[in-house]
Amino acid sequence: MKQKSTQQPFNTPEGYFENFGERLKGKLAQPKSVIPKNSGFTVPQGYFEELLGQLDERRRPKAKVIPLHPYKKHIWIAASVAVLVLLAVGLGRELQPSITFEDLAHEDIEAYLENNDLGLSSYEIAEFLPLEDVPAHLNLSEEQMLEYLTNHVDHINELNLENDD
């Protein structure tokens, strides 16, 4: 049977108010969110009972150990001396002027090149020679050339002459 309002011309379904409270509770009981309320974390059994004891242990002042051989004092002295020595050596090096290429005497360079095998061929050395001072054509007479070859070439093979015949 439909319930009729005494003041308004509106109706409600049959039994609407009888089970309204139940339906409301059901609605409230429904989970609002997909986020689980239980996060899944656990603690070891008896953890909270033992915590205070662990804290007491940490707060307790540790007994001071007096060393039989107080070597630490000597270590500090040794370390201080070492630092001073290192500083003195370092400063000494810092004060010495550094040597540049210009400071080397030509004789020293020549002596070094003569006494040390650099493993460079004549052609490789020639690549470093400046060409500005070399004349394009040398006006040498045949006698001069023969004289130079006689004095400076020990073996004819060094001339790398191509023999067509």
Binding site: S39, F41, V43, P44, Y47, L51, L52, Q54, L55, R58
Partner: peptide, 27 residues
């Protein structure tokens, strides 16, 4: 400690996630 240990523990645990770390931080 008795009053606040659990509340603080769970707060810390949710930040550091692992029990051993939470224990260190709580202490």
């Amino acid at each position: 400690v008795g009053t606040y240990q659990e509340r603080l523990y769970w707060h810390i645990r949710r930040i550091v996630l692992v029990h051993d770390d939470a224990d260190d931080v709580l202490q």
